[in-house]
Measured scan of single mutants.
Amino acid sequence: VGDQVLEIVPSNEEQIKNLLQLEAQEHLQLDFWKSPTTPGETAHVRVPFVNVQAVKVFLESQGIAYSIMIED
């Protein structure tokens, strides 16, 4: 199991704000291929294997929908 690319769908401005804060966490080494800008629009982010669980827990705790787009 390696890195994953998640497709994330924020449903409101609050969730977009939370994702932008997540993007700013440099220690997570997230690679946003497509940043969140509009509710209902997908964002794509590559998550290093060591941080996959932490990111998924965060998304679930914020009620942000996501799916695994690419499993490496």
Rank of each mutant, 00 (worst) to 15 (best):
V1M: 10
V1T: 12
G2Y: 13
G2E: 09
G2C: 14
G2I: 08
Q4T: 14
Q4F: 14
Q4M: 14
V5W: 15
V5S: 05
L6N: 01
E7P: 00
E7H: 14
E7M: 14
E7K: 11
I8T: 02
V9H: 10
P10S: 02
S11G: 07
S11I: 14
S11A: 13
S11C: 13
N12P: 00
N12E: 02
N12T: 14
N12R: 02
N12A: 02
N12C: 04
E14I: 08
E14V: 06
Q15I: 02
Q15D: 08
Q15V: 03
Q15G: 02
Q15H: 07
I16C: 08
I16F: 07
I16T: 04
K17G: 07
N18A: 15
L19F: 02
L19T: 02
L19A: 01
L19W: 01
L19I: 07
L20A: 07
L20N: 06
L20Y: 09
L20T: 05
Q21W: 15
L22F: 09
L22R: 02
L22K: 03
L22D: 01
E23Y: 15
E23V: 15
E23R: 15
E23H: 12
A24N: 08
A24S: 09
A24G: 09
E26R: 10
E26A: 12
H27I: 07
L28I: 06
L28D: 02
Q29F: 09
L30H: 01
L30F: 04
L30W: 04
L30S: 02
L30R: 01
D31Y: 15
D31E: 15
D31K: 15
D31Q: 15
F32L: 03
F32R: 02
F32T: 02
W33A: 07
W33M: 11
K34S: 06
K34L: 06
K34V: 08
S35M: 14
P36S: 05
P36L: 05
P36D: 02
P36Q: 02
P36K: 02
T37Y: 06
T37S: 11
T37N: 06
T37Q: 06
T38A: 13
T38Q: 10
T38M: 11
T38S: 09
P39I: 10
P39G: 04
P39F: 04
P39M: 05
G40L: 05
G40H: 07
G40W: 07
G40A: 03
E41G: 05
T42M: 07
T42F: 06
T42C: 08
A43D: 01
A43P: 00
H44N: 06
H44C: 15
H44F: 15
H44Q: 12
V45T: 01
V45I: 10
V45C: 06
V47Q: 00
V47I: 09
V47W: 01
P48L: 05
P48G: 04
P48C: 04
F49G: 11
F49H: 08
F49S: 10
F49I: 07
V50M: 12
V50K: 11
V50L: 11
V50S: 11
N51D: 05
N51K: 06
N51E: 05
N51A: 11
N51R: 05
V52H: 04
V52S: 05
V52K: 04
Q53L: 11
Q53D: 12
Q53V: 10
Q53R: 08
Q53N: 12
Q53K: 10
A54C: 08
A54S: 07
V55Q: 00
V55G: 00
K56T: 09
K56N: 03
V57E: 13
V57F: 14
V57S: 13
V57D: 14
F58K: 02
F58W: 15
L59W: 01
L59R: 00
L59P: 00
E60D: 09
E60W: 04
E60F: 04
E60S: 06
S61W: 06
S61T: 11
S61A: 12
Q62W: 14
Q62T: 06
G63N: 08
G63P: 01
G63H: 06
G63I: 02
I64S: 00
I64Q: 01
I64L: 04
Y66G: 00
Y66D: 00
S67D: 04
S67N: 08
S67Q: 08
I68R: 03
I70L: 11
I70S: 13
I70V: 12
I70T: 12
I70R: 07
E71C: 15
E71F: 10
D72S: 13
D72G: 09
D72K: 10
